[in-house]
Write a protein that binds this DNA or RNA. Structure first.
Lengths: 301, 301
DNA sequence: AACTCGATTTGTCCAGGACAAAACAAACAA
DNA sequence: TTGTTTGTTTTGTCCTGGACAAATCGAGTT
């Protein structure tokens, strides 16, 4: 028994690939091929875990496992993201400014990044900051992550520091009873919170009362919370990384559990390919969010 | 196919009980007994999911599944937490003050809670606020949650609002190169962040440089991050809810992956019952944390 | 009260089979 | 060329039922 080896539960935790998938790949593709410990249980060496993480990253970028597993490791490293819609922005000046910010993260210069972002916030105002700085930065980080330009811990650092800035900015806005009451959260297994914070900022600016419940609320609890807080709207966020196949069923279940008079709005990168579901409003962009709020106020409920 | 029914993956997500456990309980204890859909797959009605969540909560409070499942639902609701060490505090005045704060959460009065906490922060200073307000509040919320006094969404609201206050307070502290460099994070599946924020506040007050990476870092990434940031110390947090059985192996693996000269400190409610592991420092209380930092500065590394 | 040592409880892992939904590719129509 | 339909392949999830080890309990002993 080697302390550096991982059992199947640890690999599931670290890679996000389920035990079923790990065993299935082994049966079908012949990778990974873990060693076995004294009890005959799988025992993955760190190299295989690392390769699995790489494969998972490329899968999230649109590649297919069958191909990836057949590809030698050396070639995997250079694969480009394979997406249908390239998301790059138009303005080259703005893009290079954003790249400068991200290079501070790459250099792990916490203080400089914070200061630069504070400056942008002061210059652009909260709405501009959210729409022209935080949103494109987040997309860019996602793309860098898919390309392997960003390490996981660099993405985490970016997220953590940016979260703090946004929360701080939101905290300065007036609170108290406003209209409508919007409950913001995400479902279990969905931990990305930046998207929620961005719409919270926009909604709060427009004078809505936001009730932030953090991430990972069980469905039945979301429904209870909506009732307890007398929410007019429940807003959920799904990131691109969230298993797409589960989303429609999830939304259907939540819609069924919520009172009819509570609106259900859904946003985030994970819902782009989603078909329309009756009784649910899809917010693909941040502009959609402010537009939806305006429409709600106009009486369309 | 009923939209209100949950498949086994959804139940796992919402209850935290693994598919294996759900099937095993069905086989052994005869509960839950889900319906079957057209494909012969398990299909859990909401009542059973609700009961499972209740059982899970009582298990986290120290009860055993065999007994709980045999108990009628009506009796389950009134079961008291069954812990070896009662954690209640001494000072009755302080305790009633804290209860007042929590009653604001119970009343879902976001603004009043924020204001009251801001006042305490101003009065006690950051260190006192962390040690005498946030820490006992968090324990109390944990206890209320175990008793069923707090709903899940109320706990989430508390966590979210308190996180914001702490982050805001930490943000006002001076940043920049200091000594030692402490990397703060948690392992995958461990999403509780309040504990990390509390020690971050204390460490930052003592003049350490904190690198907050948020939660849920894969083990191998923690090791990379420590190297990239030239960290002196890696500090991890485990909540009481984290599966105890996995912790020793996890720590052993992380210790093996980290460079020898990087210290590994572990804290949080989840490590109380943990045996000592060589090369790892256990921080059971917040006082231990400041003491550990002083000792480190004294040259004990 | 503290400890040892069987007995019981409980969670995790394993193998291998089945199937449906998603992704793809090819043929066809506009 | 572009868009739509249809068949085929890929892929993930679920199923059953068995085995085992670690944690916990409880009775007896020091």
């Amino acid at each position: 028994m080697n302390a550096t080896h991982f059992n199947i539960a640890a690999v599931e935790r670290d890679t996000g690939l389920s035990k079923d998938v790990l065993r299935m790949w082994e049966r079908r593709y012949g990778f990974p091929v873990p060693e076995r410990d004294a009890n005959g249980e799988r025992c993955y060496p760190p190299e295989q875990v690392e390769r699995l993480r790489l494969i998972k990253r490329l899968m999230d970028a649109g590649h297919r496992p069958g191909k990836l597993i057949a590809t030698p490791v050396a070639e995997l490293a250079v694969l480009a993201p394979r997406r249908k819609e390239p998301i790059r922005s138009a303005d080259p000046v703005a893009a290079s400014e954003l790249d400068e910010l991200l290079s501070l993260i790459k250099r792990h210069d916490v203080a400089a990044y914070q200061q630069a972002m504070q400056q942008r916030l002061a210059r652009q105002g909260l709405q501009g900051f959210v729409q022209d700085t935080v949103a494109p930065l987040t997309s860019q980080v996602g793309e860098y992550w898919e390309r392997g330009t960003f390490e996981v811990f660099e993405e985490h650092l970016f997220t953590e520091l940016t979260k703090r800035l946004l929360r701080q900015a939101v905290a300065t806005l007036p609170t108290g009873p406003r209209d409508p009451r919007i409950l913001l959260t995400s479902v279990p297994d969905e931990q990305h919170v930046l998207g929620l914070l961005m719409v919270e900022a926009l909604f709060a600016l427009e004078g809505a009362e936001c009730i932030p419940l953090g991430t990972q609320m069980p469905l039945l609890e979301i429904s209870r919370a909506a009732t307890a807080h007398r929410a007019d709207i429940v807003a959920l966020s799904f990131s691109v990384a969230f298993p797409q196949r589960q989303i429609p069923m999830l939304l259907q279940q939540l819609r069924a559990a919520l009172p009819d008079e509570v609106a259900l709005w859904v946003g985030g990168g994970g819902i782009r390919r989603l078909a329309d579901v009756p009784g649910i409003k899809r917010l693909v962009t941040l502009e959609d969010a402010t537009a939806a709020l305006a429409a709600w106020r106009g009486g369309e409920r």
